[in-house]
Structure formats: C-alpha cells, structure tokens
C-alpha cells in the first residue's frame, strides 16, 4: 500500500506546486501592465473615491508585493475572489450563478464525446474496411475544425435553414435547456469526439490482437462477448486517460462556444470580463479552469491503477 501511496504523495505535491505557480502568474500579471496596479484595475471604468479605496483594500495595495499575494491567495483558498469591478458584487456569486449552464453544456458534450467517440471507435476497429476508412476521413477533418466553425455550420443548417434548433439562448426547464444546448454541445464536442474515436480505434485494434482475446475467440465466445467482454476492458484504459484530459479541456473552449450561442456560462463570463476590463473576474475564472483541469488529471491518474490491473500489481508505478 505504501508503494502506492508514495507516488500519490508525489503527484499531489507537484499538483500543489502547479496550482501555486498558476495563482502567482494570475496575480502577478497585474503588475506587468503599464502604470500602477490600481490604475490598471480601474482603467476604463468610472469609479468613485470609495470604490477606489475598496479596490486598494481588496488587493491590499498598501502592503508590500509578497504580502499582497499571500493575503489575496488566503482569500482565494476560502473562495473569496473579491468584488467584481463592473458589478460591485462578489466574484464568487457571479461565477456561482453561471456554473449550472456551463456544467450542463460540458456534461452534455462529455456524453456525446464518450458515446460517439468510443462506439464508433470500437466499430471501426472491429469492422475495418469501409466503416474504418470513413471514420478516419471524417475524424481527420473533425479534429481540424475549430469549434466556432462547427458552430457556424450547425447554426446555418439546423437553426437557419431547417429551424430544428434555436441559434441563441439557454432555455427554461430541463427539456428546453437540453434542446437549446444541443447545437452548442455538438460544436464543443466534435473535435474531441474525433480524437477519442482515433484513440479508441488504435487501442482496440491492439487489444483485439492480444493473446487473451485470441484465447477467448478460440474458446468459442460470441464475437460481441470477445469485443466488449475481453478486448474492451484492456482497450479502454488509454481512452479513459485521454477522455479525462479532453473533457476538462472543454472548459477552455466554452469561452468560444458560449459566446457564439449567447449562453450565460463561465466561458462567456471570462470573455465579457476581458472586454469590460473586470480583472478580478478574469483572475477567478482562469484560476478555476486551471484548477479543474489539473485536478481532473490527478483523478485520471488515480483511476489508472483501478482500471489497469497490471499497473496495480506493480505498485501503481507506470
């Protein structure tokens, strides 16, 4: 057990270091701007003397640089990102109100990525031939298509020409929301689904050639049992690792997709905050996305020995 715990401790340590460095970059960026930090923070926004003092207090600008950072980080760790300069409202509240839309969108896209990517990937590996060729061509193009181009093509076809789905907005109630989020979710998912498809295909072709799969085949197991019962269990491991990475990476792409479809989520909040020069919001959203990204990588790393019995036998070492 300790052989498993030591690499874990090392992973958590390096994760903490990455998060600390990220927070320092996000905080220190303010000092790279020309002029004083408070003139940078209020630029473009008309503020009263009290607001200016509130901003000075929020960032502890009367303290030396390092204590500013430590005090700010202390707040961040407790979920206190200060007040939005634009709205004079706690940044954490602003973000909390936006989380459900983004969570539903990313969840929807994740389901699409896993279902389409894994199913078609397995199918391409098993059938080969025409199915495989088509899957390769389509996924090559899909991987090269930016989300906003997918969004435009989908909007033109399914919203403008056919009128099946709305081009804007998030909708009310669960069913209506899913209907509204369908085009955005496809736009968000497409290139990642193609990547998952490719990885599944390669990994399954490898797994189908393994000895234990061959044995199952020789023993007369049905072909669906050979594919799903035997080959899939080994073949899915690299896919899980990749899927964790690409799904947490979707948070970055929500900046584009939410902006295109007029959705009030985290991503569009970041874009709006940059446009209205609301730096506390920019800092908070970037930190949260990087933290989610890094944490999901850790979760995937921890899942790895559970999914891959050989790695567990070797004490979690890779």
């Amino acid at each position: 057990m300790s052989a498993w715990l030591l690499p874990l401790a090392r992973r958590v340590g390096s994760l903490a270091l990455v998060l600390l460095a990220t927070s320092f970059i996000v905080f220190g960026a303010m000092y790279l701007a020309p002029g004083s930090p408070e003139s940078f923070l209020v630029r473009g926004n008309s503020v009263t003397q009290e607001t200016l003092q509130a901003i000075r207090d929020q960032y502890h600008l009367d303290e030396p640089f390092l204590s500013q950072y430590v005090l700010w980080l202390g707040g961040v760790v407790q979920g206190d990102f200060g007040l939005s300069i634009q709205f004079r409202q706690p940044v954490s509240e602003l973000i909390a109100s936006r989380v459900p839309t983004t969570a539903l969108l990313v969840g929807y896209a994740a389901v699409l990525i896993l279902v389409v990517g894994v199913l078609v990937g397995v199918l391409a590996a098993v059938k080969r031939g025409g199915v495989d060729g088509t899957a390769i061509v389509v996924s090559t193009v899909a991987m090269a298509t930016p989300s906003f181009v997918v969004a435009m093509a989908l909007t033109s076809l399914f919203a403008v020409t056919l009128g099946w789905f709305p081009a804007f907005g998030a909708g009310e109630g669960f069913g209506d929301r899913l209907w509204h989020l369908t085009l955005p979710a496809v736009a968000l998912a497409l290139s990642s689904a193609a990547l998952v498809l490719r990885t599944t295909r390669t990994s399954m072709i490898g797994a189908l050639g393994k000895e234990y799969v061959e044995t199952a085949r020789v023993r007369g197991f049905s072909s669906s049992r050979v594919v799903w019962g035997q080959a899939f269990r080994g073949g899915i491991v690299p896919v899980v690792t990749l899927a964790g990475l690409v799904i947490s990476g979707l948070l970055v792409t929500t900046t584009i997709v939410e902006t295109v479809f007029g959705l009030n989520g985290i991503g569009s909040l970041l874009v709006q905050a940059v446009n209205v020069k609301d730096f506390p919001v920019v800092q908070a959203v970037i930190l949260i996305i990087v933290a989610v990204f890094v944490l999901s990588n850790l979760v995937v790393d921890l899942l790895y020995p559970v999914l891959e019995p050989r790695a567990r036998a070797k004490g979690g070492a890779r």
Partner: peptide
C-alpha cells in the same frame, strides 16, 4: 487561457 490573461493585461 494564457493568451486571454495576456490580452486582459
């Protein structure tokens, strides 16, 4: 994200 941070600054 890094690019967005730089643009914000």
């Amino acid at each position: 994200l890094l690019a967005i941070l730089i643009v914000a600054v």
